[in-house]
Computed example of a mutant assay.
Amino acid sequence: MKIREYGITIGHLPTGVHNCITDVEGVAVGHETIREDLEDGEVIRTGVTAILPHDGNLFREKVIGASHVINGFGKTAGLVQVDELGTIESPIMLTNTLAVGTVLQSTVKEMLTQSPEIGDTTGTVNVVVGECNDGHLNTIRHIAVREEHVQRALQNASTTRAEEGAVGAGTGMVCFGHKGGIGSSSRCTDHYTVGVLVLSNFGKEQDFEYARYKGRHTEEAIAETDGSIIIVLATDAPVTQRQLKRIIQRCSIGLGKTGAYFSNGSGDITIGFSTAHRIPHQSDEKIALHVLRDDEEEMYQLFKAAAEATEEAILNSLAQAETTTGRKGRIVEAYPFRK
């Protein structure tokens, strides 16, 4: 169940139809979940999640993109070029830390098939990959993610409400000492939509604001402190890269409100894109983008939407997750939300 089904409402802005990142028109999400029991108590509890900004050719029709590093203990790929050029030209892929290379190469292969000109008559392609370390539950050294898993995550991408919890890249993740993973939420301003999807893998239960206010700490939570979160924000608002970066910086407000302190070993990273404009890879035309003014009331609403949707997406990652048994018999319980 989503967190609202437990009677918990976050913020003031209304949600979209699905209360999901896919409420931003054209955005699709796909998962591939890998669960396998090995020998000697080792298991595979990992996967891949793909976020597609639109259903066209992303290399030929890029979107405005930006990233913001809240705390940089992470192994992401592709963000240097995103920050330099202000565009995203690939699906945004999420997985575990040691699978970044496999996911990067596999996604490149898919894009080479889709666009034969890459590396031939035009430049190479910049693929964005985010990660969190699922090694508490997943035998991460086994490096279980393979090319076919990436292909299936991309093929499974759908614009309907995305699956959440212990699925895809979130299969082995832990949040506030309980089972975390994929969570999503959306907000509607007067004219635009903001959607957020998170891969949550951070925090100590004693810092979890919901637990502290409700007095619902449990004995089952694990005691790990460090961890990570990848926050992906989509919007249909017409903004520049600079404005988009300002919007995604507000995701850290929602993250902090859940109880995160951005610990030393935490990779807390936000990636954002706008679907309002498609930027052709090659064009003879000079392009003028029509964008919002910074001092518009609408911009304030977008800031608020980013914070609210991030906070609720994190809570949804907990509310939708299931108790999971991992390597060496480790059990991470689902958080015991109650109505």
Rank of each mutant, 00 (worst) to 15 (best):
D120M: 15
L137Y: 03
I118E: 04
A307N: 10
I248Q: 09
T160A: 15
V27S: 12
P14Y: 06
A305V: 14
F73N: 06
E311C: 10
R338H: 13
I331H: 05
G86F: 03
D55T: 15
T33L: 09
Q243G: 15
E32I: 04
S283M: 06
R60Q: 11
N96Q: 14
F337V: 01
A334D: 06
T49G: 02
D295R: 01
G123I: 10
G56A: 00
V198Y: 00
Q114D: 12
L199R: 03
K214Y: 10
E219K: 11
K62S: 14
T139Y: 15
S274Y: 04
V127P: 00
S283V: 14
V24L: 11
E322V: 12
T218C: 05
I271V: 13
N19A: 12
K204E: 06
P238F: 04
I118N: 13
E25K: 09
T9D: 13
D40Q: 03
S266Q: 03
L137M: 04
H191C: 15
F208D: 14
I248T: 13
T139F: 14
D23I: 09
A28H: 05
Y335R: 11
H68Q: 07
V150E: 14
E322G: 13
I230V: 11
D207K: 06
G265E: 05
K257M: 12
T97C: 08
I3S: 12
H31Q: 07
N126D: 09
V24A: 13
G177S: 08
V174A: 14
L112D: 03
S317R: 07
A211E: 03
A276D: 11
A144R: 06
E42F: 10
H277A: 08
A305T: 12
A234L: 03
G30H: 10
L255V: 09
H178P: 04
G119L: 09
I248M: 09
G203F: 01
D226Q: 13
R60Y: 09
T139V: 01
T258C: 12
H12E: 07
I51K: 01
H142D: 11
A276G: 03
L302I: 12
I248H: 07
V129D: 00
T270C: 07
E148H: 06
I287M: 08
R45C: 05
E219D: 07
I51T: 00
V150P: 01
L292E: 09
F208S: 08
S184H: 08
A276E: 10
G259R: 05
S106R: 11
I3H: 05
G26S: 08
H68M: 10
I92K: 01
K75H: 13
R35F: 06
E308T: 07
